[in-house]
Write a protein that binds this DNA or RNA. Structure first.
Lengths: 188, 188
DNA sequence: TTTGTGACCACTTTACTAATCCGGTCAATT
DNA sequence: AATTGACCGGATTAGTAAAGTGGTCACAAA
């Protein structure tokens, strides 16, 4: 069996279960049923192993987004479908939420840097899409940078933050509110 | 001169300059030109002094909001005027921002609890207004709780969070984006 | 008599040190 | 050649002594 893949899976599991700091290399080795030294034949160190997992996750997210986007369809239609597909990926969300928590509660630098990388990728991607929608005249004049940030934060609020005070929203509700605030506005 | 007021002003200044933890009672006494014991003739302890300042701030915020709201005017019109008036109060914003930073970086419980109180007051207020706008048919059907949270977070993003990666928005821009996302939506 | 004060006390936080833990290596093993 | 886990040194944590801070109160000033 593919030892490299075993290690990747075990590490991904541990990182999203315990966070970056609380994941030890001994533990990863144990979960992967592999000697600790074996990990270091595939990955230079803990940080690079973490980066690799994040990179895989980002590649997968980008693939999903690219697969769902149809250039001939309206911006909000594409947005909807990408959101829909992304919301299916529970494991990605779990790692993201765990890292958010770790960064907030313990201030682990690696967790914060990882989140920043993901956020920057998403923001870049969003910004490009908003820019195109703007050129096609599909949305009102605005600064794509600001709109991207607002879109990203709205996603976080609806999928994670709201759950502290409110029963979690289901996929359909998340999509509904996303559309309400971004596309139509509240005004009657 | 009014020693109680002196203490309140000194404490407010110190809290918004250094945060809750880094403000010592000796320091407050010194800034207020008052013996430390004097503080305890007006306030039972540090926490109650802090609460008093927060309470005053919340009372002032509520007064501003109540003063600007005209029951015969449209919801978004009122929202705009309240936002406009609130954005003028630099000292309130400074304390809020300092407490956010302290809560995030050091996890000071009192800072977090203080912020929570402010957030809950604002959310309650917003929820009531949204509920009324809903009954008047001024806005589309929605859950006032969710809309309130989104409005509050949008305010935070536009006034504070965005400043990390973007040049700070001026008052007019903040109002413009607030209106864009909440009232009209991006859709053409 | 009333109001205001800062030295003082008890408790908390911080600075320092010893003990433990964990990332990373490598000689031994398969 | 591939894999392993005992081992090493630097980092983290636990434990303790020292310093700091919230709160009191006997005394001073008005």
């Amino acid at each position: 069996m593919d030892r490299r893949q075993q290690v990747l899976q075990a590490a991904a599991k541990s990182f999203s279960l315990f966070g970056y700091k609380a994941t030890t290399m001994d533990q990863v080795a144990k979960i992967a049923n592999v000697g600790k030294g074996t990990i270091y034949t595939f990955f230079t160190n803990k940080e690079q192993l973490f980066d690799e997992i994040l990179r895989d996750m980002m590649v997968e997210m980008k693939m999903i987004a690219d697969r769902e986007i149809r250039r001939d369809r309206p911006f909000f239609d594409n947005l909807h479908r990408v959101l829909d597909a992304l919301l299916e990926f529970r494991s990605e969300q779990e790692l993201f939420i765990k890292l958010s928590q770790e960064s907030r509660e313990f201030g682990t630098p690696q967790a914060g840097e990882g989140l920043e990388k993901i956020e920057n990728l998403v923001l870049e991607y969003l910004e490009r899409e908003v820019q195109q929608a703007l050129q096609k005249g599909e949305i009102k004049p605005c600064d794509p940078k600001i709109v991207s940030v607002v879109m990203f934060r709205l996603y976080i609020v609806l999928t994670a933050e709201l759950n502290k005070t409110h029963t979690p929203l289901d996929k359909e509700q998340i999509k509904m509110y996303f559309h309400l605030f971004l596309a139509e506005g509240l005004g009657q």
